[in-house]
Design a protein around this nucleic acid. Structure first.
Lengths: 264, 264
DNA sequence: GTAATAGTGTCTATCAGACAGTATTGG
DNA sequence: CCAATACTGTCTGATAGACACTATTAC
């Protein structure tokens, strides 16, 4: 690839063309809002659901600008990769794991958002499991990587660049996705009880309240498709009493994605 | 602003920093998929709804690369503006009008997508009224600006760059938005009949079929909020017989936006 | 009157939502 | 037996969906 990146096009027009006539951006990073749902056992007499909390992983910046402040993990995109590739690579570098849900959020390009120059940032959000972040935390110096509750990040913590705005947008998006799609599966084992599912939804979307959740999810025909009961090889329903005295039916997500409409 | 765009930061770190250590993109344009809904009167004995069709505005490229081929209107982003600003400016330049719905679609950054070099394109889609495009069509040479039916664009027309992919994504997004939000209002006058609304939805989302549309939209409590009957100053319901023999009740959108969920 | 579009009546099966009641287990 | 969680029964009013029927107007 030549200096102007014209990739071997040797037509007269290509050779005459210069992309350098105009000021060009100084860099195009991908930043990732990594969400995880922590689980903490409660110390009670009887079995009970763990306390879940939505957390965001941040790293402490080592260098100028905003040295010492908390920021989203991210890195610059290279010419040989797409922005999505860069985000995938970054996610792998931070967690040591490929996979998990990675989704594009948007572009942040307000002039002056980065003192290093004209830096156009592309935000993603990822849903990862808690253990995926532990190796990263062990590898780094203590205090360089942190998991913070979403409320703390949005209300208290001082963040580098416009990362508070990015995290706010990511939070709104994950809440919307939690209700519009089946990303709840990213925060659950393959088989789960309806109480667990309900708790996961409520942890991400605190406003979500559905008395009779079990009744609706199992009775309404239009919603029956997204979940199915887990059965053993004899066709007997399988249940778990991991979190309750009485065993609860196990469910799993199907591949069905319902169409939502405000008109029907 | 200095050569490195560091905006007056004179700290030692800022002065030592150089953004030019790495290869940087050659340009960051905003491209806009401009949708419009054309209306064509049908020549029938009695009054009837016009034929509506979803169209996309394209311009013929004048210069290398892809000279002579159809492409999305767009332009390069400047350092002094955000990507959204650039799209707003471009929309204004193309239609002569501010306003209309303009929404971010996504980023297109596959290596090699643009023979001019490392060009990262940001796609938007806009919903404009047909008359907004007429001034642009008149100003240009004939044949330089065209309105094409969405099916023709996606299946037949040869397009510059990866613009077919962008338009396909924009089509999927506008279909989703049509069902999830009230963007149908962008394609309708302030007051409209339910038949018109139904026709607009069906034009954008051909799969949408709802026998009993009128019954549901007016009877279901959960959907009553998004529309309201238009009444005159005496409180009498207003109707229109523009498109039918028997007058039909007029409605308008409210500001209410229902929350959709696959779980409730 | 006829044709064309806009609604309404009516019926049945299903669903929403509330709340009381029963089931299963560990301690 | 008690406490805790997981359901199920039951009731009322609302909704979905189908289809026949009436209403209003131009010609």
């Amino acid at each position: 690839m030549n200096e102007h990146g014209k990739q071997g096009d040797t037509s007269p027009e290509a050779l005459a063309y210069s992309a350098k006539k105009y000021r060009t951006p100084d860099g195009v990073p991908a930043d990732i809002v990594m969400f995880t749902l922590t689980k903490k056992e409660r110390k009670t007499v009887t079995k009970t659901l763990p306390i879940r909390e939505l957390k965001v992983m941040l790293i402490r910046r080592k260098s100028w600008p905003f040295a010492g402040m908390w920021a989203l993990p991210g890195g610059f995109c290279r010419e040989s990769e797409s922005i999505y590739d860069a985000a995938t690579r970054e996610l792998k570098e931070e967690t040591g794991v490929d996979g998990g849900h990675l989704e594009y959020l948007g572009v942040y390009s307000t002039p002056g958002r980065d003192p290093r120059g004209w830096i156009i940032s592309h935000a993603f959000f990822a849903l990862v499991e808690e253990w995926m972040l532990e190796s990263r935390q062990a590898a780094d110096d203590a205090g360089e990587v942190g998991l913070f509750g979403i409320e703390e990040v949005l209300n208290g913590l001082e963040l580098a660049f416009d990362h508070r705005e990015i995290i706010r947008d990511a939070y709104l998006r994950i809440q919307q996705q939690m209700l519009h799609s089946t990303i709840a599966r990213q925060f659950l084992p393959e088989q789960f009880t309806l109480s667990e599912l309900y708790q996961v939804i409520q942890t991400v979307v605190p406003e979500f309240s559905e008395p009779n959740f079990i009744r609706k999810i199992t009775s309404t025909r239009s919603r029956q498709g997204i979940l199915e009961e887990v059965r053993d090889e004899d066709g007997k329903p399988m249940s778990s009493n991991q979190y309750s005295q009485r065993p609860a039916q196990l469910y799993r997500f199907t591949d069905y994605a319902p169409l939502l409409s405000i008109y029907t």
